[in-house]
Amino acid sequence: MSTETSIDPKLFRQLLGCFPTGVAIITTHTADGQPVGLTCNSFSSVSLEPPLVLFSLRKASSLLGVFAQADAFAINILSQSQDALSGRFASSKIADKFEGVAWRRGELGTPLIDDCLASFECRVHARHEAGDHDIFIGEVRHMGTGPADHALVFYKGAYMMLAESLRKLVLEGRLGTADIDEAYRALYGTLLRLACERASEAEVDAIEAAVAEIEQHQGEQALPRRIEATASFFSSIALAGHNEALRLMAQTMTAVLRERMTHVIPARPRPDVFPLRRKLVQSLRGRDAQGAVAALDELIAMLRKDGDADTGAAQEAAAL
C-alpha cells in the first residue's frame, strides 16, 4: 500500500518561486475586437519544429472564456523598464488594461505592446485542462524584436532587478541601520498583529520550527544554515499574517537580511536572545499581539546594541 504526502499549497507556491522566470503579457481580443491581456510568468517554449509555445491560465480567471474562444494570442516579453505594465495587467482593479498603453495590432490581429523585448503571435494549436489551470499551446506565426534591454525577471515573489538593487545598496552601506530596524519593527510588527488574528496552529508551528533551527546551528561554521533559518523565521511570520502585499514586502526585507548577515554585520552565535524568539512564539500561540510585538522590539534592540559593539571592536582591531 502506498501513501501520498500532502502538499502544502503555500509552500508549493513558495518553492516554485525559487525558479526565476521571465514576465510576459499575454494578449488577445474579444469577439467584438476589444483588446484584453494579463500578466503571466508561465510562458514556455514547447517545440522548434513546429514552433510551439505555451502559457497556462487559471480556471478562475475572468479572461478564461475570452482566450478559450479566441483563435490567436500574442506573447509580449517585458523588459525591466516595463515593470509598471506588469503590475497594471496583473491588477484586478483596472478594468481597461490598455488605457494609456501604446500598442498596435499584429498580423493576426492580436494586440502587440510597444517596446517589448520580443513578441510572438500564435495560432491556437491546442488547449488542455490541467488541475486548476488550462494550458494553451500556440503555433508561432509571426515574431518581432524590440529595443536591447534586460528582461524583467520574477524571483521569489519579487522582481529580480529589485533584489539586485537592494544587494548593491546593502554592500555599499547605503541602507542605514536605523532605517532598516525601523522598517523591521513596522513591517513585522504589523504582520505579528495580523498573525495573532489569522494564523493557523500549523503556521505557528512553522515559526517555532524555524526558531529551533536557528538555535541548532550556532557554531561558527554553521553561519550559512543559520542565515537560512533566520530568513525562514521571518518568512514564516509573513506567511502567518495572510496579507499578500505585506508578504511581498517581507521578501524584500529578507533579501536585505541575507546580504547583511553574509557581508555586513557580525553574525556570531547569539544564544542570549533565544528566550526572546521563544517568547514571541508563545505570544503568538496565546494570540497576544502586544506581547509578540514587544518581544520583537526587544529582540531587535538587543541584537543591534551588541551588534554595534561588535562592529566597533572589529573596526578598532582593524585599525591597530
Rank of each mutant, 00 (worst) to 15 (best):
T3C: 04
D8V: 04
P9I: 07
K10E: 12
K10D: 11
L15Q: 12
G17M: 04
C18W: 11
F19E: 01
F19I: 10
F19W: 11
P20A: 14
G22W: 03
I26V: 15
T27E: 03
A31L: 12
L38R: 05
L38W: 05
C40T: 12
N41F: 06
S42T: 14
S42Q: 00
F43Y: 15
S45L: 12
P50W: 08
P51E: 03
V53W: 03
S56G: 01
R58V: 00
R58H: 10
S61W: 06
L64Q: 14
F67Y: 13
A72K: 04
A72T: 13
A72E: 03
A72R: 08
S79C: 09
D83R: 15
A84T: 13
A84P: 00
A84S: 13
R88C: 03
A95T: 08
K97P: 01
G100E: 08
R104Q: 12
R105G: 00
G106Y: 02
E107W: 00
G109F: 05
P111A: 06
L112N: 04
A118S: 13
E121W: 06
V124I: 13
H125K: 12
A126M: 08
H128E: 13
G131T: 05
I135E: 11
I137E: 05
I137D: 05
R141M: 15
H142C: 03
G144S: 14
Y159K: 04
M160A: 15
M161W: 02
E164G: 00
K168N: 04
L169G: 11
V170N: 02
E172F: 01
G176T: 00
A178K: 12
A178V: 09
A183E: 12
A183R: 11
Y184G: 00
A186T: 12
A186M: 05
L187A: 09
L187N: 05
L191I: 03
E201L: 15
V204K: 05
V204Q: 06
I207D: 07
A210Q: 09
E213H: 14
Q216E: 14
H217V: 06
G219A: 12
Q221Y: 06
L223Q: 13
P224N: 08
P224D: 09
R225Y: 05
E228T: 13
E228R: 11
S232D: 11
S232C: 09
F234V: 08
S235M: 10
A238I: 07
A240Q: 11
A245W: 07
L248V: 10
Q251L: 14
T254E: 14
R258K: 15
T262S: 07
V264L: 14
I265Q: 07
P266C: 01
A267I: 00
A267K: 00
D272H: 11
P275Q: 13
L276D: 02
S283D: 14
G286L: 10
A292D: 06
L296D: 05
L299R: 04
L303S: 02
L303R: 03
L303M: 08
K305Q: 13
D306G: 00
G312F: 03
G312Q: 13
A313C: 06
A313D: 08
Q315T: 12
E316K: 12
A319W: 06
